[in-house]
Amino acid sequence: MWRRLGTGLGLLLLVGAGVGLWITQADPLPDDALAGLEGDPESGARIFAAAGCASCHIAEDGPADVLSGGKRFATDFGTFVAPNISSDPVAGVGSWDDIALANAILRGVSPDGQQYYPVFPYGAYNKMRDQDVIDLISYMRTLPASDIASQPHDIAFPFSIRRLNGGWKTFAMVDDWTLQDPASDEIAQGRYLVEALGHCAECHTPRNAIGGLDTAAWMTGAPFPAGEGRVPGITPSKLDWSVADIAEYLRSGFTPDFDSAGGEMAAVVRNTAKLTDADRQAIASYLKALPN
């Protein structure tokens, strides 16, 4: 009996290990995912601004177009350090081909098949249009190179095991739109800018125990990851600004009370100020269309 029990437990362990390996494996794009697409750097500049790439990847007080990394992000899971994603072929991503960059952006997978941590918001970028991805890549290739080496994350075991991020993707990543059935094309465009490119929910939505976004409390505010203060809610019941007020704030950084954006939002406004008036109007319309 004990032998049969031991054999059964061994089989269960093997099955469990196999399921774990399957769940946590990388899931890259097909090699031909971008076939036939050509990038437009001018369009890519707008995508770059909307996606907030510079906000994380420029060095503290560094030039706005040098993506040398180094910015640190304190979280409950450890401190993450933004990598160099400049066009340098050694320190940055200049040697990566388009599909490798697209895998990082859309799937959170490195060229050698490692899982990226979701502090890189591929959980939002996975909704990007393929043309926007290739336009973004083509624009990034025009930016200056930096030979500053990327710094390692400061993360304790077991979170230091990158493969576990595959399990996080399975159980915590949001694949679908949160606002369903937008009432207009403008709101649909705002949804794309907010939920995909702008990844606004990464800061404005609370998280569950494994770090996934709590979509039932979408945009209702969340604790600062560093543990001090709170990111405000921006649903209609928590932000009573008009569409025009929100659009103006995204352009100039000034609130209806003539206060100005500060902290991390100052960097966000530097990006949204580069968008079109129609983009900012769409973002504002989307926010006003959210449930209270």
Rank of each mutant, 00 (worst) to 15 (best):
W2R: 15
T7Q: 14
V15L: 10
V19L: 12
L21N: 14
P28N: 01
L34W: 00
L37V: 09
D40M: 03
E42Q: 15
A45I: 01
I47Q: 04
I47W: 09
A50Y: 05
A50N: 09
A50D: 05
I58L: 04
E60M: 00
D61I: 02
P63T: 10
A64L: 08
A64Q: 13
A64E: 14
L67K: 07
L67H: 06
S68W: 00
R72Q: 11
T79S: 10
V81Y: 11
V81Q: 08
P83T: 06
A91S: 10
I99D: 04
A100C: 03
L101F: 09
A102F: 00
I105M: 02
S110R: 15
P111H: 07
Q115A: 08
P121V: 06
N126L: 15
M128I: 11
M128V: 08
R129P: 09
V133E: 00
T142R: 07
S150T: 14
S160H: 01
I161Q: 15
R162E: 15
R163L: 05
N165A: 06
G167L: 11
M173H: 07
M173C: 01
W177G: 04
T178N: 12
P182V: 08
D185R: 08
A188G: 00
G198F: 03
H199E: 04
A201D: 05
R207I: 01
I210K: 13
I210W: 10
M219P: 01
G221P: 04
P223D: 10
P225M: 08
G227Y: 06
G227K: 14
E228W: 12
L239I: 06
W241Q: 03
I246S: 02
Y249K: 02
R251G: 11
R251Y: 03
T255P: 05
G263Y: 08
G263Q: 04
E264A: 13
E264G: 04
M265V: 10
M265I: 09
A267F: 09
T272E: 01
A282C: 05
S285K: 09
L290R: 08
P291R: 12
